Simulated assay, not measured.
Amino acid sequence: MLDIFRGLKSLIRVSHIHTDSPIFRLHYSITVLVLVAFSLIVTTRQYVGNPIDCIHTKDIPEDVLNTFCWIHSTYTIKPEKRWKADAKLGYPYPGVQTTVDEKDKRLIKYYQWVCFCLFFQAILFYTPRWLWKSWEGGKIHALMMDLDVGICSEIEKKQKKKLMIDYLWENLRYHNWWAYKYYFCELLSLINVIGQMFLMNRFFDGAFLMFGFDVIAFINSDQEDRIDPMIEIFPRMTKCTFYKYGVSGDLEKHDAMCILPLNVVNEKIYIFLWFWFIILSVLTFFTLIYRIVIIFSPRMRVYLLRMRYRLVRKDAIDLIVRRSKMGDWFLFYMLGENVDSVIFRDVLQELANKLARHNFHHIPGFKGEIQEA
């Protein structure tokens, strides 16, 4: 079974160059990997069994009946239309009863599309990453110049640091639009995960939004009174109606009972996805709140740089944040994630010195160059 996952290795490779946040990476790495893996699992019959097995008399070939019921969908009886049987007796199979009105039927027709839906969801989760990768344009990688490892000759290190400082100096206050594009991708990720909850709710006829809460309530309820919500959405036994012409040319109706072993896998997949999407939505929402605070609070930007890069002098960070914009702060933060900490300290220190020399007559109380740590 491990053979089907060999092609997914590229999805879990973590790049040593970080151009985004850990929460954003959860969307396009772990989530995409999980969705593609689930899509492969439900399409691999030999590992999960036949998707459908129908029981009927020998008048109809088994393969014909199974294929017909798989293509044309099966059905159960809607919960509100079922017999009001004694709770102690219950139903032999929930939803499998005789029906008089066609309106009482609940068609189970989603199972043919589960693998395609999961793969489509994976594409949607990767879309914000694809956008940011094209908009970022390799800026972080170009500015790093292999300075993530501080082991190189002093001459080479000095040249690379000078190139980085020159770029930051010449392009200071021009990175807002670049940063806002990334923030838009994070917003798009939140919209995507919430939208997919509603997409799956539509896919399962309005039964998915409360699915996780129903499962929790089912686990905590009394054993005699509880009805498994996973069987309601993913029934394991359904009915199928097959019409054929007899020897006299009259139309014959045949009712068959069908077992859906694939739904045992589907219910586990979607209960996991429900909880995972809820967790992902909450984490992404708080990330966006954090971004809003960063945009409108220079003090928070100073505090975060101080906490993250303690080797840089506080007065240097204060000056840099005061003389730059939010987009520059985002670039500094991303560079600090990727460049060697000592080299990054020297870069920010030299940038602060250049700012101080260029703007000393505008800075109250300035008495000289900022000293290196």
Rank of each mutant, 00 (worst) to 15 (best):
213 F>G: 03
216 I>G: 06
267 E>G: 02
271 I>W: 07
253 K>H: 10
288 L>R: 02
221 S>C: 05
241 T>N: 11
277 F>T: 03
264 V>R: 07
274 W>A: 08
267 E>K: 06
248 S>H: 10
233 I>C: 04
243 Y>L: 14
259 I>V: 15
250 D>V: 13
261 P>E: 03
234 F>Q: 08
256 A>Y: 06
230 M>E: 13
272 F>R: 00
273 L>M: 11
283 L>K: 04
229 P>A: 07
213 F>H: 13
290 Y>S: 12
255 D>C: 13
292 I>N: 00
277 F>A: 08
246 G>R: 10
217 A>R: 15
271 I>K: 04
268 K>I: 04
231 I>W: 07
236 R>S: 14
221 S>A: 15
265 V>C: 06
250 D>Q: 13
248 S>R: 10
272 F>Y: 08
235 P>K: 04
285 F>Y: 10
272 F>E: 00
293 V>G: 00
231 I>A: 10
220 N>L: 14
291 R>Q: 01
289 I>R: 01
227 I>P: 02
272 F>L: 05
268 K>R: 10
261 P>D: 03
252 E>P: 00
219 I>M: 11
216 I>N: 12
264 V>Y: 09
271 I>Q: 06
270 Y>N: 06
286 F>H: 01
221 S>K: 12
212 G>F: 10
250 D>F: 14
220 N>D: 14
262 L>W: 11
230 M>V: 06
269 I>D: 02
213 F>N: 12
213 F>V: 15
278 I>Q: 04
224 E>K: 15
246 G>K: 11
224 E>M: 13
278 I>F: 10
240 C>Y: 08
282 V>W: 04
235 P>L: 04
279 I>C: 11
223 Q>W: 09
212 G>P: 03
282 V>Y: 03
281 S>P: 08
224 E>L: 14
286 F>A: 00
269 I>P: 02
221 S>G: 09
279 I>S: 12
236 R>Q: 15
217 A>N: 15
230 M>R: 15
280 L>I: 11
272 F>S: 02
223 Q>E: 11
272 F>N: 01
249 G>D: 04
251 L>E: 09
246 G>I: 06
220 N>I: 12
274 W>C: 04
262 L>E: 13
285 F>T: 09
261 P>C: 06
235 P>S: 07
289 I>P: 00
280 L>S: 11
230 M>W: 08
223 Q>A: 09
